[in-house]
Nucleic acid binder design. Structure first.
Lengths: 229, 229
DNA sequence: GGGGGAGTGTCGGAGGAGCGACACTTCTTC
DNA sequence: GAAGAAGTGTCGCTCCTCCGACACTCCCCC
């Protein structure tokens, strides 16, 4: 139970922290130029930290940022996001505290939007505001669909689903340790191993050291849907 | 596995379809008056049906509406919402299809907002749009928090959490059948019964036919946190 | 080229929860 | 007030997953 919270968060990241949450276009950013404060961060420095009052949101221009949470002295990465992603906005609009820390993976350039400045400005640009709204609601919808899709499914199905998705995103050869998969799914390494073996036995994937290659996406989809077991 | 999808949806309803999702104030509605089409529905008639293209959202003015999904000829209620609630907006903005059906429980008055009319109008009222955005994002945040809070918790803890929350909302005496709780939680009736018995044995609640009364909310909170059990 | 850390493969035990089955109680309705 | 529907209380079985333990393999780096 000790790390359960973080595992769940990691799992959530696959739904919530997805890089396809890109509400703002470059044109939008230009519109907001007078309230955008360009910042840059060296590798390892923070944009914000977990628990701080969320007074600003950030739009990443270049580089990558890790979102993570601390637990018992160790960090657990929740998501890694790149250019175009908006981070911290949910906490900011909610007037709460950041739910995770954001740290630069490499040299990062970003725009910082201060809450007190951004909101009045947004009020002047309804189209922009509307786009953000639509994007947020779509995110909410995706989340619902995704959770309905995955929740209470067997780990085997979850692994299959994860592999299909990752393969679609970055090609059939995945550099993923089984422990990493387990963390993403919020399950245990052993169970993932069991699932991986099953998938290998049915010829859907090949496995190696820190590597999984998808051979038969069709079959994986069937498993992910729960039709095979 | 056959009804799993719907149970999950029911579970989701507690996070997503919550009546505290009230983005619009009466003043807002007034602002939108020229695009609001007042409608009224008799008991049992539908506002929209699952799977239909989501071309409109509704704001309930009076009466109650059940959101439900059909499964193998039987309906499963996902949520019951009252005045002020906005329904169908997520699907509408997402340009998808309704994820559930909406049926009037009693005489219902509502405003219907057609997608094609609402969006241009929203674009003219940034403040309103902004409020909706904030509300949606807060909803998203609540959802995250809630899922992190409940996911992978034992059914006992989930039941305790549900009871605490319902008691806080509508007083210590709850008219809830155990089967209904099971549906809300996406678990089985038997397991809920087991949990209810445990809670009764420890003196946290009293039970009766279709009724549960909360005696010791403190103790329930402890159980919900996972510290007991 | 050898040691140590990281990753993989496997077993067995324990526990949570789903599910079918069945007896019993309480409410509703005619 | 009797029949039937709805709800509750319990068993026993099975499946899935977690967890600890241990052997083994692969990679990196001194």
């Amino acid at each position: 139970m000790k790390t359960a919270q973080d595992q769940h968060l990691a799992w959530l990241a696959r739904s919530f922290g997805r890089p396809d949450y890109l509400p703002l276009t470059p044109a939008d950013i230009e519109t907001l130029q007078n309230v955008a404060e360009p910042i840059s961060r060296f590798t390892g420095s923070h944009l914000f930290k977990e628990g701080e009052p969320a007074i600003a949101a950030y739009v990443i221009r270049s580089g990558e940022v890790d979102l993570f949470r601390m637990h018992s002295g160790r960090r657990r990465v929740v998501a890694r996001v790149g250019p175009g992603s908006v981070i911290g906005d949910i906490a900011m609009f909610g007037e709460g505290t950041y739910m995770s820390s954001a740290q630069a993976v490499n040299q990062v350039k970003a725009f910082r939007f201060d809450r007190d400045v951004l909101i009045p400005e947004l009020a002047k640009h309804p189209a922009l505001c509307l786009r953000w709204l639509v994007s947020a609601l779509r995110q909410l919808q995706n989340t619902q669909r995704r959770i309905v899709h995955l929740m209470h499914k067997t780990v085997l199905a979850q692994v299959a689903d994860l592999l299909v998705e990752e393969a679609a995103k970055s090609g059939p050869d995945l550099e993923l340790s089984q422990a990493a998969i387990a963390t993403l799914l919020g399950s245990s390494r052993q169970t993932v191993n069991e699932a991986v073996r099953t998938l290998r036995d049915m010829g859907a994937i090949n496995t190696g050291y820190r590597m999984i290659s998808v051979v038969d996406p069709e079959k994986l989809n069937e498993v992910a849907a729960g039709h095979v077991g």
